[in-house]
Design a protein around this nucleic acid. Sequence first.
DNA 1: ACTATAAACTAATACCATTAGTTAGGCAAG
DNA 2: CTTGCCTAACTAATGGTATTAGTTTATAGT
Lengths: 176, 176
Amino acid sequence: MPRMQLTKTAITDTALSLADQHGYEAVTMANIARSLTIKPPSLYNHFKNLEEIKQAMAEAAQKQLYDTLKGTEQTSQPMLSLAKAYVNFASSNPGLYASSLPGGNGEYANALVRLVADALQAYKLENEKMIHAIRGFRSMLHGFVDLNTHAGFKLEVDLEASLEEVVGIFERGLQS
Amino acid sequence: MPRMQLTKTAITDTALSLADQHGYEAVTMANIARSLTIKPPSLYNHFKNLEEIKQAMAEAAQKQLYDTLKGTEQTSQPMLSLAKAYVNFASSNPGLYASSLPGGNGEYANALVRLVADALQAYKLENEKMIHAIRGFRSMLHGFVDLNTHAGFKLEVDLEASLEEVVGIFERGLQS
DNA sequence: ACTATAAACTAATACCATTAGTTAGGCAAG
DNA sequence: CTTGCCTAACTAATGGTATTAGTTTATAGT
């Protein structure tokens, strides 16, 4: 066999840098192949289809997001630190963040949930309440990012201030 | 001229029912034209391109969402009622909800923001704080819906219970 | 009835993902 | 060292997408 110069991770990395530099919609078989100086059908020797490539991208992008967020739980304000890092990652790398969304079940999807759980640790919530709180906080972060990138909060009120206030509301709500 | 049997709203409505019945990804020039028993290029006599059709869809879908949510502010628990109605609309009509997202600036986009503001009315927030709270609550609702339909909260913990708890956290946070 | 307008059409271009079938390079066995 | 197999790459083709150019034709107003 011709030496497998082309690995799954090489394809995934190329697709990710495509998403990062030219947006998630630029992730096409044709563009990936062009970047690798091969023809599109060759990609099918390594992945079943585009969807499978996007799954692999999601896993890798989630790892990047995880690595960026890791450590924020050891600060004085874990939830605020996590929120700021999360929003900053998504705003700075919209293509990467978009890549991370499709996969909901991999190794790093769980790791990200654990990271949110760690940030909520101080509030000593019981099982069910913890799950509700995780869902709520994660929803808030994703919604904040998603509304902002797709629709955009129109008013010229500072985004950072909104995030701080909103995390404050959530934290006070957990306390009482 | 051949009688304009085909109006902008007729096209928009057809596209919306396509999104509702077969998903937002089924909204293509070919499918819209097929539903109307015309050929795709004819659509360009009424809209500049597909994006413009989707903008019109967003406006109409936002109106439907607004009409569904209107009235919830006159209940005993406006925020919870609004949240439940919002999540219910999005889960029951995912194609319609997806259609509503692209447009961030129309008449009904503002009406929806006012609806959220009304639900927060009881907390008597000042200007800036009100805007932060609106953004936070809207983010939570959209994030909740979006994570659920695209990734899906995996654990078999009741969604309705999560929503109630999460709205409760937010309300308590506003109080203190 | 005639003409101008515009809504529909056909045909074409340039993308997209995907599949079938072919070529050719390198590894392993003889 | 040669032979043969495996497989990664290719070419060619299919059918999908949006969009544009140019043409036909029906109708509304004069």
